[in-house]
Simulated scan of single mutants.
Amino acid sequence: MTRLLKVGIAAAVAFTLTACGTTAGTPEETPADGGTTTQAGGSEAPAAGATEEYEPGDVVTPKDGKKLKIGAAFPILDQFLQTVADGMQARADEAGVELVVVSAQERADVQLSQIENFISQGMDAIIVLPQDTDATDPITSAVTAADIPLVYVNRRPAALPPEVPYVGSDSLIAGHLQMEALGELAGWEGNVAILQGDPSQEAAQMRTQGCKDIIEEHEGLNLIREQAGNWYRDRGLAITENWIQSGDKIDIICSNNDEMALGAIQALKAAGQLEDVLIGGVDATSDALVAMEAGELEVTVFQDAKGQGAGGVDTAIKLHNGDPVPSVIDVPYLLVTPENIDEFK
């Protein structure tokens, strides 16, 4: 199969966030359908369990005039997550809030210890990007027991209480967008391999499922390989080298992120097979956009890192203010192709 460069562009959707803050009303205020509740004076506030879509608005500031100190616990500060941290810092600076960022170097035990330190330091709010989305109960319990506002960002916990908000994107949609575009390029025929992120994390689980959903809808697409590269470029390179050596014909690589996709590109270039494989990633990192302009990466999916960071800070401040917030603040994904790449530079 020859390499194609045209990709159908997904329609952009406008998103508006009308309110954020503490999640739940009283039991009698919370409707069974997880919609909105009516507050005194007739205004509507999001109920526990509600989802709203996010668009950056005016900066949120503490109503009590306090100089807030917010702790942000990251699993690691790679290229993408550093951009999330930068978005948080920019928003914190606008709001006059002190932000303390720590990285756990991908160790869940270290992250829990760092969060316990935040609690002992008396942080006014805590933002967490969990290392292990299947094991966040100790974090949630510790922070909420200390009566400190808690916001999860970017990586959605498997167990997310409705009163603890999450700011991020629906990873299932990312998998759908990239695989739909790759499938269309391939004429809905070919062998597919999936490069998966860390299997313990919701983003890897759901992006992989999104790829599989589209594959299962088309008889001409066959999933023949799936392996975890834990988000790293060198792992994407090594895994793809092994796939090449196996002799299996691979027509499409659906990668959970750009870093692993870039590793796959390196392996295929070295083997002289890049022209025969369609590759998609997620995140729209600067390196990925360079690869796309070079004709090496077919598609990626923009994840608004700065928007997630800003939304996390806004939500933390609103929780401090006692304002209502929905349980989920959705920051939408957008498909990036050679046709619309200039919008994402």
Results as ranks from 00 to 15, higher is better:
residue 92 A to M: 08
residue 162 P to I: 11
residue 231 W to R: 06
residue 336 V to R: 01
residue 125 A to H: 05
residue 212 K to M: 11
residue 205 Q to T: 15
residue 133 T to L: 07
residue 148 I to G: 07
residue 1 M to E: 10
residue 327 S to M: 09
residue 123 M to L: 10
residue 178 Q to S: 11
residue 142 A to D: 04
residue 274 L to T: 03
residue 220 G to L: 08
residue 306 K to M: 10
residue 139 I to H: 03
residue 107 R to P: 00
residue 84 V to N: 01
residue 116 E to K: 14
residue 17 L to N: 15
residue 262 L to Q: 02
residue 171 S to W: 08
residue 123 M to D: 05
residue 111 Q to Y: 05
residue 281 G to I: 06
residue 40 A to I: 13
residue 43 S to V: 14
residue 66 K to F: 00
residue 333 Y to V: 09
residue 183 G to E: 07
residue 53 E to T: 14
residue 317 I to Y: 06
residue 126 I to T: 01
residue 276 D to L: 11
residue 238 A to C: 08
residue 18 T to I: 10
residue 139 I to L: 04
residue 274 L to Q: 13
residue 69 K to I: 13
residue 246 S to A: 12
residue 30 T to A: 14
residue 57 G to F: 05
residue 125 A to N: 02
residue 128 V to H: 01
residue 20 C to E: 10
residue 127 I to N: 03
residue 319 L to C: 12
residue 195 L to G: 02
residue 199 P to E: 10
residue 291 A to W: 00
residue 234 D to V: 11
residue 16 T to C: 00
residue 171 S to P: 04
residue 60 V to A: 11
residue 131 Q to C: 14
residue 22 T to D: 13
residue 122 G to R: 15
residue 104 A to M: 06
residue 91 R to G: 06
residue 137 D to C: 00
residue 81 L to C: 07
residue 54 Y to L: 11
residue 239 I to M: 02
residue 240 T to H: 04
residue 304 D to V: 07
residue 87 G to L: 06
residue 226 E to S: 15
